[in-house]
Design a protein around this nucleic acid. Sequence first.
DNA 1: GGACAATCATCTGCTGTCAAACGATCTGCA
DNA 2: TGCAGATCGTTTGACAGCAGATGATTGTCC
Lengths: 156, 156
Amino acid sequence: MATTTKTAERARPTYFPQLAAERLDIALCRASAAVARAADAHATEEGLGVGQHLVLQMLDAVGPCSQQTLSEELRIDRSVMVSVCDDLEREGFVRRERNPRDRRSYAVTITDSGRRRLAEAQTSIPAFLGDTFHPLTPEERAQLGMLLGKLLGTGA
Amino acid sequence: MATTTKTAERARPTYFPQLAAERLDIALCRASAAVARAADAHATEEGLGVGQHLVLQMLDAVGPCSQQTLSEELRIDRSVMVSVCDDLEREGFVRRERNPRDRRSYAVTITDSGRRRLAEAQTSIPAFLGDTFHPLTPEERAQLGMLLGKLLGTGA
DNA sequence: GGACAATCATCTGCTGTCAAACGATCTGCA
DNA sequence: TGCAGATCGTTTGACAGCAGATGATTGTCC
């Protein structure tokens, strides 16, 4: 993203310090949404959105899942999960079969093609992520992940 | 928000640990957007959105500003700032006067009514925020703010 | 003075997210 | 068995964020 260079060029805006601490928290959370959005946009450009990547990764790791399970684990809204799976299915990366035990739900399964695509993505992504998170040291990134995880109640 | 109680009630979803670290970062950033959204929704319910609150707070602290300055400092998009100021002006919390030195820009000024509204909001918000951020200690909150700030290039 | 690029506020269109509602299906209970 | 309520996937409508274009204004360079 050009944001990094841009902020360097011009007198970069700063959260003005008089902001009440509580509001600053929220302002920053809101801003971290921008990071996620940028990552999303970039990943989509590369042909595999963050949501799609997460789904493939999870299916690869834990086997067939319902869309419900996927959306709960990955914090992607059910209605959004529909289109994520639509896209993945259209490209042949997953199969949707009705779960015979509960015909309301699907058993979403990763295909061999999906596994190959996943492997590709794993290699192309790190460079971009290094770019996005480069202001932070590896320790700080780990810490950020830990704090956000704690804030969101995902356990220690 | 009911999120805290809800996560306690039901088998709470967790980011499944096999997630590659890089993706987890982004997944968490994305999820923290949900925190910001929840805060926004709550604040709007109380009659003063987060954006509006931030603007009032800044105008109160640093005096009249152009919309451009406000949107840069507060990381609110220019086009969004238009409607934020529209709302504030309609309710009489700010005045928009043309800057005589540069008639392209406005000098947005907080009114006495705006100051009163700001004072009200300052008292009603902390309770909700304490609830939202209670998983973190004050030190951790400060650290989270620092890390996100660094990630976004707002300086140390 | 006049041409040109830059800036401010604004509007429009696109995308992603979410809440609410719906049909199909399952579960529990009488 | 039959019925009420819950759950799964889906669609729809509303809304925020963002990029790009526009009109008014400013500053700059010739």
